[in-house]
Write a protein that binds this DNA or RNA. Structure first.
Lengths: 161, 161
DNA sequence: CAAGATTGACGTCTCAATCTTT
DNA sequence: AAAGATTGAGACGTCAATCTTG
């Protein structure tokens, strides 16, 4: 069956717009975090789950699962953040293999301080630009349900048809 | 004015889904390119505009503008791709400051060979999962028009209201 | 052996400094 | 001085290897 070889004009345009939007949003939000708190997006992503966890402590395993990150990525970043005084690593009492990641007072002050501005930036630059109809359409789209197919570590497992 | 401090439940969920979708799509498409052509997504992004350019040649400046990349990012990547035989750098006759980037026969064979499969993957994993209504709604959304505000190098310039 | 985590090597991107040409 | 491009240093993420414990 003669499948088209390339995307058509409209598809190319929308695909490019989709990626440009993501890139633009990311770079803008990264800049906001850097300017207001000296944090990268990855660092902020680590701090947020910790700030919501009871006691500000999580097992590295849970943190990694929450973020859907590689173990080594988390390990490297936690080490750097520990050196900057944002986090502290502790031994895990339940399982001697594990390690706990604790938010320091400094880390908490920083994440709590920047979170409202960051949330506001996301609203301004994303949610406020989508109408109620668009939000509803998007929210109900089956495109989201497919994320699971592309989850971390999954090799190309395509939805059939 | 009592602005909410954080995103609400629905917003958090949609925002996370949005980013997870992008991450998933990217990692899946990167894997496809790597498996079928030994290319990274960035390398493919460089090859495509060249393959469409007359003679397979572009000024580095135009290529950088097309991709909206930093000059040094392009320079580093072109150097590596030149070493692999995918590209060739040449002097620019019009402007001695500039440099031309030429697609080699090897590079052309590789990009032409993988483009159909890559396009097909994008269709399967993105366009085919959006209904006509969803596509139309998305296509007309003003969210895309805002990309320009977030263009490369732009500091946080937010749409008013 | 499997799970949790760390480490080192490597490739890539960002930023600032530099060089040449306009 | 500005534009085009290159370079080197530093930060980050990925991968494979390693170590320890269950």
């Amino acid at each position: 069956m003669a499948r088209p070889k390339r995307l058509d004009e409209d598809q190319r345009r929308l695909w490019k717009a989709y990626r440009d939007l993501y890139r633009g949003l990311s770079s803008m939000l990264e800049a906001q975090l850097q300017r207001d708190a000296g944090l990268s997006g990855s660092e902020y992503a680590v701090l947020v789950p910790l700030s919501h966890a009871p006691g500000g402590v999580l097992r590295a395993r849970e943190l990694g699962a929450e973020l859907a990150w590689d173990r080594s990525r988390l390990s490297h970043l936690v080490r750097r953040m520990e050196q900057r005084g944002l986090l502290a690593r502790e031994e895990c009492s339940e399982d001697a293999r594990g390690s706990m990641v604790r938010l320091t007072d400094t880390g908490r002050a920083i994440v709590d301080g920047v979170a409202p501005e960051h949330s506001e930036a996301i609203r301004r630059c994303f949610f406020n630009l989508l109408s109620s109809d668009e939000l509803q359409t998007l929210d109900q789209s089956r495109i989201w349900a497919v994320c699971v197919y592309y989850a971390h570590g999954t090799r190309e497992r395509l939805p059939s048809r």
